[in-house]
């Protein structure tokens, strides 16, 4: 498992959250159509989701309004917290989120139903249309 140097961690905590939240929202808007063509995200409208990176002591929040993902500074309706390494494990589907939850490595607070809806959306997502758009060397490097 990788760990960031303490100096980098400290620097990350001091940086504003808005730029990464903006990048995340833009990325989600970009992949929305290929990944979730049938999903209207009405259940996410006006709700704020926060992803906290527990080992770095920082996080970012996003929301959904008028058909688009946007960065948010509102209080979170649901908050996920895990280490950066565990987010990476989840993103690559190497572990089941329930397993990490049982082991207390993934925490969910706030609106549990919204959290479950997001978890199940990620589980139901077929990422192949997206990976097909990545250049082959990058695909191989990520072992996708």
């Amino acid at each position: 498992m990788f760990k960031l140097p303490a100096l980098v961690q400290k620097a990350l905590q001091k940086l504003p959250e808005q730029p990464p939240a903006f990048i995340l929202s833009q990325t989600l808007n970009w992949v929305k159509q290929p990944l979730w063509p049938e999903e209207d995200f009405s259940w996410l409208e006006g709700r704020t989701v926060r992803l906290e990176i527990s080992d770095l002591g920082c996080g970012l929040s996003y929301s959904f309004a008028n058909g688009r993902f946007i960065p948010s500074q509102a209080p979170a309706d649901v908050c996920f917290a895990a280490s950066l390494a565990d987010y990476w494990i989840l993103a690559r589907r190497q572990e089941d989120p329930d397993t990490l939850f049982f082991q207390r490595r993934l925490r969910i607070s706030g609106d549990t139903e919204l959290g479950l809806q997001l978890k199940n959306l990620m589980d139901a997502t077929d990422f192949s249309p997206l990976f097909a758009r990545l250049p082959a060397p990058l695909r191989q490097r990520l072992a996708l």
């Binding site: 589907r93 190497q94 572990e95 089941d96 989120p97 329930d98 397993t99 978890k119 589980d123």
Partner: peptide, 10 residues
């Protein structure tokens, strides 16, 4: 059925 694809695979 409530678990993720990673669980089903394993």
């Amino acid at each position: 059925r409530q678990r993720s694809p990673a669980y089903t695979a394993e």
